[in-house]
């Protein structure tokens, strides 16, 4: 363990911990935009600068490991002034678009601008303008809002192992794009969307469906493969309008294209909304009473005529444990047969 002091408070953390993590461990806030706990430290946004006694310039806390006896100061008029300048610089090249931005209310940059009280900007100047170029159905890119934090680039490389994008060009014209700005070779996992701190990357299907304040968030489990990823359904007026995942989950917040973007079947108009009974070869709408009585009657008759083992039931890997339990109990205890299976083998 390494002992150091942050703002005069003694803190003890394991060797290799960064100043930022040590401060967060001690519940001392330091603003960041480019930091992500699961990605390689980047040191690009410079907001997390702190003073370390004995070092003559501020250091980025996200990249600097603690050393024994280190004396860290996370806030001072000078540090806050530098942070404000950095924010002013970022905002001087950012559309003042919060009014219609999908990310409003869930945007790190917006929060920071609020806390540092930046409205007028003495550093206004040219802003980047990009032609809209989006031919994928999942990810909405607003490159003007990109602050080059590089999280999307790192996640695509370090977590997804795909490397579909990187930073190209230099200086003010630096931007995130696929190699040679050719077509995106992407798995559409949306991991990049999940870590973007601004409205630069959002889900295409999210557009104008409701923002943070309208949303009820419900934690549940993904309905697709067997990984058992935790997902958060964002619900507005009985509709799932987006899906995300928390970092402190089994899946560490990562999802696949189906898990993240494949939710619109839930509110699909073709969902079955009423029971049907076949009459004269055609399926006709029926009430629950009609349908259930009809089934009970027919199953009873088949059982009486051919025996319980002439009835079989197929359960589902998409249903819950409780439902599966009830289904087999129904088949075994109510119908009286062990003819119950599901599609484990398919």
């Amino acid at each position: 363990m390494i002992d150091l002091s942050i703002n005069g408070l003694p803190v003890s953390v394991p060797e290799g911990t960064t100043i930022l993590d040590a401060a967060r461990f001690a519940d001392i806030p330091i603003p960041t935009l480019c930091h992500h706990p699961k990605l390689t430290p980047y040191g690009g946004c410079r907001l997390c600068i702190v003073d370390v006694k004995g070092i003559n310039r501020p250091v980025t806390s996200c990249t600097t490991p603690v050393t024994a006896g280190m004396e860290v100061t996370t806030t001072s008029p000078t540090i806050e002034k530098l942070r404000k300048t950095i924010l002013e610089l970022i905002l001087s090249d950012h559309p003042n678009d919060c009014m219609v931005c999908e990310k409003a209310g869930d945007c790190t940059l917006q929060e920071l601008a609020y806390f540092y009280g930046i409205r007028e900007n003495r550093l206004d100047g040219e802003r980047r303008v990009y032609a809209k170029k989006d031919d994928n159905p999942f990810i909405e890119r607003n490159m003007e809002k990109c602050i080059l934090c590089g999280k999307c680039v790192r996640i695509c490389d370090e977590v997804q192992g795909v490397g579909a994008i990187d930073i190209a060009y230099r200086g003010f014209n630096a931007k995130v794009c696929p190699p040679f700005e050719k077509n995106l070779d992407c798995e559409f996992c949306g991991q990049c969307v999940s870590v973007c701190p601004t409205g630069a990357l959002t889900g295409k299907a999210w557009g104008q469906r409701g923002r943070q304040k309208d949303i009820k968030e419900i934690e549940t489990i993904c309905p697709y493969c067997g990984c058992g990823c935790s997902i958060t359904l964002h619900v507005r007026r009985n509709e799932v309008i987006r899906v995300s995942s928390r970092e402190d989950t089994l899946n560490e917040g990562w999802l696949c294209p189906k898990g993240r973007f494949g939710y619109s079947f839930i509110n699909n108009a073709a969902r079955l909304k009423t029971p049907f009974i076949r009459e004269e070869g055609k399926l006709k709408e029926a009430t629950w009473d009609e349908a259930l009585d009809f089934i009970a009657d027919r199953l009873g008759k088949v059982k009486a005529k051919y025996g319980a083992d002439s009835i079989a039931g197929l359960s589902s890997a998409r249903c819950t444990n409780e439902e599966n339990y009830l289904f087999q109990k129904f088949m075994r205890a109510a119908v009286g047969t062990n003819n119950v299976d599901h599609c484990a083998r398919l």
């Binding site: 690009g44 410079r46 080059l148 003010f172």
Partner: peptide, 17 residues
């Protein structure tokens, strides 16, 4: 400005300003 790599904010936008 034209040789800034674009990684950090003060260099990328600051030199531009």
């Amino acid at each position: 400005q034209s040789e800034s790599c674009g990684k950090c904010v003060p260099c990328r936008i600051g030199t531009k300003r």
